[in-house]
Amino acid sequence: MKPQNTILEELKEIAPTLVETGVSMPYFVQDGYFEQLADSILEKASVEFLPNSLNSSYQVPDTYFSGLAYKILLRVKEMSVEEASLYDENESIAPILNTLPKAMPYIVPANYFEQLTFQTPVEKAKVVPMKKMRNWMTYAAAAVFVGIMVTGSFLFSDKQQAQDFEKFQNMDVAAALDQVSDSELNSYINENHANSVDELTDIERANLDNVDDKIQSMSTENLSEYLNENGFLELKSDSKK
């Protein structure tokens, strides 16, 4: 190929007017023509030439073209693959089902679905299980019971009595009585209707009379046995000696 300058020099020699006209084209091409050119050629080629070439080397299922329109329709209507599968299934079992309208004949009240609202169940307050409540109450009741028992034991126990008894046992009664005046003793006796010493001695004497009779009637063996069993009396009597 000759360089551009050489071509122009040659053209000047042959036809100088052409050089003055220039090389720009007066024709116009549609916008985007070249971008779509490849696709449009392929499209034409597939329509005109591909079926023949396919027929020669590939097999097509017998019912492919009969069901193609329906399958494309499904895709256009954005139907699911499962609906297509159902169509095939119905075709093989009961083709009449594919010819029936699927619209439900039942009427729904106007705006039913728009107005269908649900009152969400109100959240119930947390229920404290009775078991926990019972435990709490059990502890409270136990505490109250223990309190009552402790207080009661202090109030009603004989500890104080025992302490008082011990105190009086160790007390020198004779010395204490010496400190009490006769008038106080008399007034105590009068107020408490206490038996006089004479009355007490009369009773003891009457009892002793009976005791003497009973001792008289007892055998020596019984008496010795009694004394053996109550040896402390001997000790006491010994200590008095």
């Binding site: 299934e89 119905n90 079992i93 009961a94 009449i96 089902l97």
Partner: peptide
Amino acid sequence: YHHAAKKIE
């Protein structure tokens, strides 16, 4: 489903 479809048909 097979039995049902047949019956309905």
